[in-house]
Each structure stands twice: as C-alpha cells, then as structure tokens.
Measured scan of single mutants.
Amino acid sequence: WLKDDEATHCRQCEKEFSISRRKHHCRNCGHIFCNTCSSNELALPSYPKPVRVCDSCHTL
C-alpha cells in the first residue's frame, strides 16, 4: 500500500496530482492513480462490496 505523500503523479497516465486531480488507491494493487485511471469497481474477496480498482487490475 503506497502512502499518499509518496505519490506526486498518477502511476498510469503520469499526470501530476493537484487539488482538482485527486489521489485514489487501487484496492487491489495498492498503487495510487487519478480518478480517470481508477474509475472501475471490482468485487474482491477481502471487501464486502465492490471497491475502486485501477484500469490494469480491472482488466486482469
């Protein structure tokens, strides 16, 4: 799980985070992405409801 202060850019699109481009953790891989690159939800065994995942984890 990557800490918020360790990420300054989206792991996928590499756009810089700002007040309007917020950080979101993928609940599967733990990396930090922008909203555009992590707008999917997936049912994971460790969560009772579908949770936010990055595009890469969603296509696995």
Rank of each mutant, 00 (worst) to 15 (best):
E16G: 08
C57Q: 04
R21P: 03
H58D: 03
V51W: 03
K49N: 12
I19R: 10
R22C: 03
E41V: 10
P50F: 07
H31G: 13
F17S: 01
D4S: 08
K49M: 05
P50A: 13
H31I: 09
I19S: 11
P45N: 12
R27N: 12
S38R: 09
H58G: 07
L44P: 05
K49G: 10
L44M: 10
P50M: 08
E6C: 12
S38M: 04
N35R: 14
E16N: 11
C37M: 03
N28P: 06
P45E: 10
H9R: 07
S38N: 01
C26H: 02
N28G: 09
D4G: 07
D55G: 07
Y47K: 06
N40R: 14
H31E: 06
L2Q: 11
T59D: 13
I32N: 11
V51C: 00
L2T: 11
H31A: 07
C10D: 01
E16H: 10
P48F: 01
S56C: 12
C57H: 00
A43C: 09
C10P: 01
T59L: 11
C34M: 04
I19K: 13
S39T: 13
C34K: 03
I19C: 00
H25K: 12
C13I: 00
E41T: 09
P48C: 02
C29G: 00
R22K: 08
T8N: 06
V51G: 03
V51M: 06
S38D: 02
L60D: 15
R27I: 10
A7L: 07
D4R: 07
F33V: 13
C34W: 01
T36A: 15
R22Y: 05
S18N: 09
G30V: 01
T36S: 15
K3Q: 02
R11C: 15
S20K: 11
K49L: 05
N28Y: 06
S56F: 15
G30M: 06
E16Q: 05
S20W: 12
P50K: 12
C10I: 02
H31F: 12
C37D: 04
L44V: 07
H31D: 09
K3P: 00
T8S: 11
C34D: 02
A7D: 11
L44N: 04
G30N: 00
K23C: 08
F17N: 00
R21I: 07
P45V: 09
L60R: 11
N28H: 13
S20I: 12
S56D: 14
L44I: 10
R27P: 15
N28M: 06
A7W: 08
C57Y: 01
R11T: 13
S56E: 15
H9T: 07
S39G: 14
K49Y: 05
R21H: 04
L42M: 11
V53I: 04
C26V: 00
E14T: 07
C54S: 01
E16S: 08
C34R: 02
R27H: 15
W1T: 06
A7I: 12
S39Y: 04
N40F: 04
R11M: 15
S56Y: 14
A7K: 04
Y47C: 01
C37K: 02
S56K: 15
G30S: 03
A7Q: 13
H25P: 10
F17P: 02
C26R: 01
C37P: 03
T8Y: 05
W1D: 15
H24C: 09
I19W: 01
S46W: 13
N35C: 15
E14R: 04
R22W: 08
Y47D: 12
C26Y: 01
T8P: 08
E6S: 08
T36G: 15
R27A: 14
Q12T: 03
E14D: 10
S18A: 05
H9Y: 05
T8D: 10
S18Y: 03
R27K: 13
F33K: 02
C57D: 02
E41N: 08
E16L: 05
L44H: 05
E41S: 08
P50V: 10
P45S: 12
Y47I: 07
Q12R: 05
P48H: 07
W1Q: 15
T8I: 13
G30P: 01
P50T: 07
N40H: 10
D5K: 10
C29E: 02
F33T: 06
Y47S: 10
I32T: 12
S20Y: 07
C57L: 03
A43L: 13
A43E: 12
C29F: 00
F33A: 03
P45C: 05
K15C: 07
E41A: 08
K3E: 03
S39N: 11
H25V: 13
T8V: 06
E16M: 05
R11N: 10
R11S: 14
C37Q: 03
Y47P: 04
N40Y: 00
P48K: 08
S46Y: 07
E16P: 07
H31C: 03
L44F: 07
Y47F: 11
H25T: 09
Y47G: 11
H25S: 13
D4L: 05
D5G: 04
C10V: 01
H24T: 08
H58T: 07
F33H: 03
S56V: 15
H58I: 08
N28A: 11
D55V: 14
K23F: 05
Q12K: 03
C10A: 01
L60E: 12
H24E: 13
K49S: 10
R21T: 14
K49A: 05
A43K: 10
T36W: 14
S56G: 15
H58C: 04
F17C: 01
D4C: 00
P50Q: 07
H24W: 06
R21G: 06
A43H: 10
A43T: 11
F33N: 03
C37V: 02
L60N: 09
C10K: 01
A7T: 12
D5V: 05
E14Q: 09
S39I: 07
L60T: 10
P48E: 14
I32E: 13
H24I: 03
N28F: 08
C13N: 01
C29N: 00
H9C: 00
V51Q: 08
L60W: 04
R21F: 06
S46P: 13
R11G: 14
H31M: 09
E14K: 03
F33Y: 12
W1L: 11
